[in-house]
Design a protein around this nucleic acid. Structure first.
Length: 502
RNA sequence: UCCCCGAUAGCUCAACUGGUAGAGCGAGCGGCUGUUAACCGCUAGGUUGUAGGUUCGAGUCCUACUCGGGGAGCCA
């Protein structure tokens, strides 16, 4: 059946020709003797024009009363028309209704997030979620392409695992025929074993973390790609990471510019995502955070926020006055809708204004040795227009497997990559400890059961080499690329800390 | 886990200091030959999250609970 239908994304090649589209009614408007049906077919949107007299009266009346998301096929001639979504429109000569929908719950008006998540199975059809899905697809394809084209071998690491790698309090427990097991937090440890066989490897799959984190940056189930390379040092890893991120950003820009535009992404900023990225050590970051420059930066930011707040309040005041005046009811309602949006923006601004001094205080009082908090990362990330590497964190703040810097044993050879303009961390990586005795000591220091790590220690016994790798969070990367505020919109069926919808 | 905010029609929201519920969208019907979240007219639609309390009277005040949103800590 599929082969007979023309895809909306390919309409450019069919001007003046008659085609048949198969899809769903995305939206319709009628104006007496003319109807505008917007059809969605999974590849795009197309406005279909229905004129009275050009089709049978029966069909005209049926289509006039057809509910949103009804499925149908439409036949007609394609014309270019800039008034139309997508640039082409179809003048209908015939149509066949496949399935009638009544009372589709998601209307073209605004909805709350709880409602949309409860209806995620339907919300996936919306233009926004569709755009994000297309971008996600490109991103994942680009990730695989990059590693495949650069000599990496894909290794599928297990999801059931006995070991902890990232802190035991964030493990999901599973009952494995009576034996306690965990869902994987990372494929890294197994990947290190594979790297000693293939040299350059990567794994790509779902990852589970039971973090009690109810933020716009956290999911309990997320997708992570992790490369691991034998014979590499920290600089080599940074180069790999910046080439990788530049590549995937470029691919998304190349394939999904339209989707990025629809989503309101900052395309000019993304175009600057080219290696080399900025490089700072943790110690430099601490200096920056506690510097006067940062305080000034935050003060200026606060002033800007307050100015914006004032403008918003003035705007809201004007609208409220307008609303009281002698105007039509529908105009009042339009203003009411605008007010809701403005008030939401105001609430967000207020949160930022409230947080600014707290963040400023946290930054000034920052002491060497602590891990960077979310707000600290945000500040550093806001001060830069390209991704920033932060390297050489204090040993105590990081995982047991990270290699101690032989020139300064207080720090490890690790890095985080912060996406610019306030998006925060998208990559975490490190050189791995390759010395048997040092690794044993670290495992003991962390209070981990050494029995569980025997095979991992073997890797340091039989031909140990300097090696390392990193992990990139797919949903966070999508949030950064698209400018989407919340990570839950960046995966089709999100799993949140205290809520799994469908 | 902690702090702040919220819950009113299918959806998004109104209802000034306590006085018995109101719009838009959506749905149904009608009008309009170029609409872009179209517009105009009519109709239907509610035990105000749950349980108590204060009061002559509670959507509005108080208490507890449930659910949701935002933020913090921790992280990709």
């Amino acid at each position: 059946m599929t082969n007979d239908f023309t895809q909306i994304s390919c309409l450019a090649g069919f001007q003046g020709q008659e085609v048949t589209l198969a899809g769903w009614l995305y939206q319709s408007r009628s104006s007496g003797k003319i109807q505008f049906l917007i059809i969605r077919d999974g590849t795009g949107l197309c406005q279909c024009i229905l004129e009275k007299g050009k089709v049978s009266n029966k069909l005209f009346e049926q289509l006039k009363h057809l509910g949103q998301e009804s499925s149908l096929t439409v036949t007609g001639i394609i014309h270019a028309d800039e008034r139309s979504v997508g640039g082409y429109e179809l003048v209908v000569t015939d149509a066949e209704i496949i399935s009638v929908t009544t009372d589709y719950p998601i209307t073209p008006k605004s909805h709350g997030i709880d409602f949309l998540l409860k209806n995620r199975h339907l919300h996936l059809r919306s233009q926004r979620q569709w755009c994000i899905g297309k971008i996600r697809h490109t991103l994942i394809d680009a990730i695989r392409r990059f590693f495949n084209d650069n000599g990496f071998t894909l290794i599928d690491t297990p999801i059931f695992t006995a070991m902890a790698a990232e802190g035991e309090q964030t493990l999901f427990e599973a009952d494995y025929f009576g034996t306690p097991m965990h869902l994987t937090q990372t494929g890294q440890l197994h990947l290190e074993a594979a790297a000693m066989s293939f040299g350059k490897v990567y794994c790509f799959g779902p990852t589970f973390r039971a973090e009690k984190s109810k933020t716009r940056r956290h999911l309990t189930e997320f997708w992570m790609v992790e490369p691991e390379v034998a014979f590499i040092d920290l600089n080599g890893l940074l180069e790999l990471a910046e080439n990788f991120v530049s590549f995937i950003a470029a691919k998304v820009l190349q394939n999904n510019k339209g989707e990025l535009e629809t989503l309101g992404a900052n395309i000019t900023a993304l175009e600057q995502t080219k290696a080399p990225f900025y490089r700072l050590t943790y110690t430099e970051v601490v200096d920056i955070l506690t510097s006067e420059k940062t305080q000034k930066f935050l003060t200026r930011q606060l002033e800007n926020l307050q100015n914006t707040k004032q403008q918003l309040e003035t705007q809201i005041g004007e609208l409220e006055n307008e609303q009281k005046g002698q105007i039509k009811q529908w105009q009042k309602d339009k203003i009411a809708a605008e007010l809701i949006e403005l008030n939401a923006a105001l609430a967000e601004l207020n949160t930022k204004i409230e947080n600014n001094p707290k963040h400023a205080k946290l930054a000034t009082e920052f002491q060497w040795g602590r891990d960077l908090g979310g707000s600290d990362e945000t500040i550093i990330s806001q001060m830069h227009d390209k991704p920033v590497f932060v390297t050489h964190y204090p040993k105590e703040a990081k995982a047991f497997y990270m290699k101690t810097d032989r020139e300064n044993d207080k720090v490890v050879l690790n890095f985080d990559l912060l996406a610019p303009s306030g998006f925060g961390e998208i990559i975490g990586g490190s050189v791995r400890e390759d010395d048997y005795d040092l690794l044993v000591a670290r495992i003991k220091d962390y209070g981990l059961d050494i029995e569980n790590y025997q095979w991992y220690l073997d890797l340091r016994k039989y031909g140990s080499v300097p090696h390392g790798g990193f992990g990139l969070g797919v949903e966070r990367t999508i949030a950064w690329l698209t400018g989407e505020r919340h990570i839950r919109q960046c995966i089709a069926f999100p799993r949140l800390m205290d809520k799994v919808y469908i």
